[in-house]
């Protein structure tokens, strides 16, 4: 394997991570506001199919992405209304929507399976792309990848460095306090759920019109990505930067599983393709185990040196969800 093929591969990783970044950022915003949108997996499929169908029939890429985001927004709005206003379990509603949108995508997408559709062209950035290594890695992509990179920092800045972002953190952590300070908790939760849903929706056409162009029904290879995005939101500790890092790691794993294939002739290819998914659970275990009682007790029993080292490692990885996540909020 030459240096050039590795570089091309890594550039591919950046591209493949793009939709996962969108979805993870969207879910991070939604969950920061205290709402779990469990429908991500189906939403991405339906948005991918809808965006592809729209772009194919109108030959307009913009419309494809618009439809994808609209689908994400509408599904999120349904979830928001049923859970925030009608007080039904977010888990139940989100899960039903995840299954419903997935089957809708397969049902409505049937006539479009295998059709050749439009594809977002690559937009090499002049000048920047000639920077050694970095140029090929980051500046030789289609506009969506650039948008995703910009959005990572915009979202991070919004959450941590702005006043509305501070209120957003409060919505998820202590909604009652945010309400007492004059924030319209329900309205803002609506806004962030729909906004997050639109970002999740954007991931769909990013697949079907760019990184995995086309619609192939059940073998599109998109089923499962949404669950990964949900796991990455936790892995990222609800921090857009850390979540994005997770998305790149996931794409890297997917690429590595292809790279190592020729060297492991005994392992079936189908196994390597799904290998990144089980690895996700391991990372979730690592980031959560520091929160458990028995781990705290075990740590207390260790000699001080070992305790400090282990505790530091665990703390670096540990995540704590927003305190009000998934809980209904009554305004009186």
């Amino acid at each position: 394997m030459t240096w050039d093929t590795i570089l091309t591969g890594l550039a591919g990783v950046v591209a493949m991570a793009t939709p996962v970044v969108f979805a993870t950022l969207g879910e991070t915003l939604t969950e920061r506001a205290g709402v779990i949108n469990l429908s991500v997996n189906g939403t991405i499929l339906l948005a991918a199919m809808g965006g592809f169908a729209a772009a194919l029939t109108t030959d307009n890429l913009w419309l494809g992405f618009g439809v994808g985001m609209l689908i994400g927004g509408v599904v999120a709005a349904l979830l928001a209304f049923t859970s925030l206003s009608l007080k039904q379990s977010q888990i139940a509603v989100g899960f039903v929507l995840a299954l419903l949108t997935r089957d809708l995508a397969y049902y409505l997408g049937n006539p479009f399976v295998g059709k050749q559709g439009p594809r977002v062209p690559v937009m090499t950035l002049p000048g920047l792309s000639r920077i050694p290594v970095l140029g090929a890695l980051l500046f030789d992509h289609d506009p969506l990848t650039y948008l995703s990179i910009v959005l990572i920092f915009v979202t991070w800045f919004w959450v941590y460095k702005t006043r509305p972002g501070l209120i957003l953190q409060g919505l998820g952590e202590r909604p009652a306090a945010a309400y007492a300070r004059g924030a319209n908790v329900r309205l803002q939760r609506y806004v962030y759920t729909i906004l997050g849903g639109m970002l999740v929706g954007l991931a769909g056409p990013t697949y079907s019109l760019s990184v995995k162009a086309g619609w192939k029904g059940t073998i599109s290879g998109l089923d499962g990505i949404g669950w990964i995005a949900l796991a990455l939101t936790i892995f990222g500790a609800w921090n857009p930067l850390r979540g994005a890092v997770g998305a790149y790691l996931f794409a890297l794993l997917q690429w590595l599983s292809l790279v190592v294939q020729p060297y492991l002739p005994d392992v079936p290819t189908q196994v390597l393709q799904v290998a990144p998914f089980p690895l996700m659970i391991l990372t979730l275990l690592l980031v959560n185990i520091g929160n458990t009682e028995w781990m705290k007790r075990t740590l207390a029993g260790l000699p001080p040196d070992a305790r400090h080292t282990v505790a530091r490692i665990l703390r670096a990885m540990q995540v704590t969800p927003p305190a009000g996540l998934g809980r209904a909020f009554e305004e009186e």
């Binding site: 196994v271 998914f277 659970i281 929160n291």
Partner: peptide, 22 residues
């Protein structure tokens, strides 16, 4: 492990699929 059963379950679903394919 402190892993919510939704994610633990999903993760093990993928592991089960991998086992079957293997």
């Amino acid at each position: 492990g402190g892993v919510n059963e939704i994610f633990g379950g999903l993760g093990l679903n993928f592991v089960a699929t991998t086992v079957v394919l293997w």
